[in-house]
Structure formats: C-alpha cells, structure tokens
Design a protein around this nucleic acid. Structure first.
Lengths: 158, 158
DNA sequence: ATACTATGAATATCAAAGATGGTCAAATGG
DNA sequence: CCATTTGACCATCTTTGATATTCATAGTAT
C-alpha cells in the first residue's frame, strides 16, 4: 500500500506541472479529496515542499483562506537555491552577507536599491542583539529575503 | 471562494483611483451592493484603511450621513521621517509593519519587489526569536530599511 | 421666534458564529 | 526506529446581528 503522502505529493506536483509557478489549494478540500485528516496535508507540505526541495508555502486563514505552494525558480547565474540551502547556515557574518548581496547585484538578480535595502536589513544597526545572537538572526533575515527573490515570477527584470 | 473583504477593498480603491484624493460612500448602500451586513463595511475600513495604510476615515451619522475615505499623499521625506522617528517605537507588530510597507508601495516610494523584500525581512520566519523579542527586533530591521530609503529620496524624486 | 421633543435615518460598536489553516502529541504501521 | 496518520485544541480572518449612538428634521409648546 503506497502511503497517502506520496499521492498527495504527486497530486500537488501535477498541479504545478501545468506551467504555473504556483498553485493555491484549500487544505480542507484537499483533505476531503484524499479522505484524510487536514493535518495530513500540512504534514506533506512540511516534509516535501520545503525550500530544500525548492518550494515555499504561504497561507491565509479564515473565510476564503488558502495555501499557496510556490516553486522556487532556478536562478540564472547566481545560485539562489545553493545560497539558501547550503551557504547560509544557522549563522552568518555581516561580511559574508555583504558579499552575497553584492554578488547578486552584480549579476543583475537584484537592483542596486534592493541591494541597499538588504544591506540595511542585515546591518549591525538593524539587529540590536547581543553579539552572540546577531549572526543567527541575520541568517534568518537574509534567508527570508533570498526566498522572496527566488519566488519572484520570471519576467521584467532591470 | 474569494472573501468579500477583498472585493470591497478593491472596490473602494478603484473609486479612489479615479484621481480623487477622497471619496464619500454610504455604508448601507455599499452593504446592499455587496449583499452583506453594514458592519462588514466598517470591518473592511478598520482593517485596510487605517492611517498606517495611508488612509483616514471620517463619517457622519444620521440623515444624509456618509463615510469619507481620504487617501493621504504625504511628501516622501516627511512621511519617512515620521515613520522612523515617531511611528516605529521600540517594538512594532507584523501587521503594522505590513500596513506601512503596503502604504509605501501604493504611494510609489518603493517598488513592488522592494515591498516584498521588506515584508520578507520582517516576517515571522525571518525573525526566529521568542515572541517577546520579535516585535523589538522587527522595529530595528524596519527602521534600518526606512533609513536606507530615506537616504535615496533626493536623487530620484519626480 | 425659541426651545424642546419626537422620529426616522444613518453610522458605530461589540460579541458571537462561521470558516479556514496551524500545532503538537499520541497512535499506527512498516 | 522512523515515517505516516489522526484528532484534539489553537489562532486568525470573515461575516452577521443585536444594540447603542449621533444627526437632521419636523412638530409642539410657550
């Protein structure tokens, strides 16, 4: 008996294979379709659709709520997925951050203004914590921003 | 099923997009149009048209009553300084951050992509700390980014 | 005329109900 | 032991309805 997890995973991926970079699903609806507990859906998403696997999840509760599964784009030139999953660990220094941000800017992945914003967000001023925690916090902030960049739809560019 | 709130919000914004800085509506009339309880209108206004979002509401009860939605168009510099020096204190909630970021985007101070980056930087995921500290850290990160934006104002003003 | 009152026409408030998704630990199964 | 599956409980967002408040106007008493 193949576990449900695999079917649910395959089903979601089939939705994404229709060319879209993202799909919205309703947790309860999906759960009903597969006759399983709603938390099963959460389980599949949290084990098979992580940034590690090249996806991010956003969701909204309440009436009209949804879960959005976004496929991260393969970065051209700059290896965003590598940066997110390997390069940044639990902590990262300010210097390393700046190197990464500058590189993204030079490769045209982000604009000069976006680079400035990112530098500000990871700066020592922004992160007002004991030194021991700064690098950990910085890792989280940088990763979140890189995930955002990786989920941008491929289009305009500057 | 998209929630009514979103449609009502969009409708009001479309009214404002016709060049006017303000628009008067009648709560009951709007509610009838959307086939919802009048208090639904109040709900939308109080959650999506706050001063942080860049709007103020005035209203009058009784015969000939109305609700006036005024869009604030601040000069960029002064609004930024207000946000940096007054609005953001030692702590700020995620919701308030998001309102402020949306407002900057709607007023053309930042691009859509920059807004996304900023939201990512202050998101719950980015700031991996005990709840008690999140809001304090967030204030630092947002302030640092706003300072960065303020420092570019001179150059590209139209 | 002036002041007061009654009435109807709006909006405000607030709590409850409804509609989602999230979390976590326990049960289950290979 | 590890991955899956479930269920009870929680958090958040939307929608509604009952009740309170405010305002304009018409009517009434003096």
């Amino acid at each position: 008996m193949k576990p449900l997890t695999d079917s649910i995973e395959a089903f979601i991926k089939s939705l994404l294979d229709e060319g879209q970079a993202q799909v919205d699903v309703q947790r309860n609806e999906l759960a009903q379709y597969f006759r399983c507990a709603p938390s099963q859906i959460t389980y599949v998403l949290s084990t098979r659709f992580t940034p590690d696997h090249g996806y991010v999840i956003e969701s909204r509760r309440g009436g009209g709520g949804y879960i959005r599964i976004v496929r991260l784009r393969e970065s051209r030139g700059s290896n965003l997925l590598y940066l997110i999953n390997q390069r940044i660990g639990d902590t990262i220094s300010l210097k390393d951050c700046e190197a990464i941000i500058s590189q993204l800017c030079e490769n045209g992945v982000i604009t000069e203004n976006e680079a400035r914003l990112m530098r500000a967000a990871v700066s020592a001023d922004a992160i007002n914590l004991p030194v021991a925690f700064k690098d950990a916090l910085r890792a989280g902030v940088l990763r979140a921003m890189l995930l955002q960049i990786a989920s941008r739809v491929e289009e305009e560019d500057a």
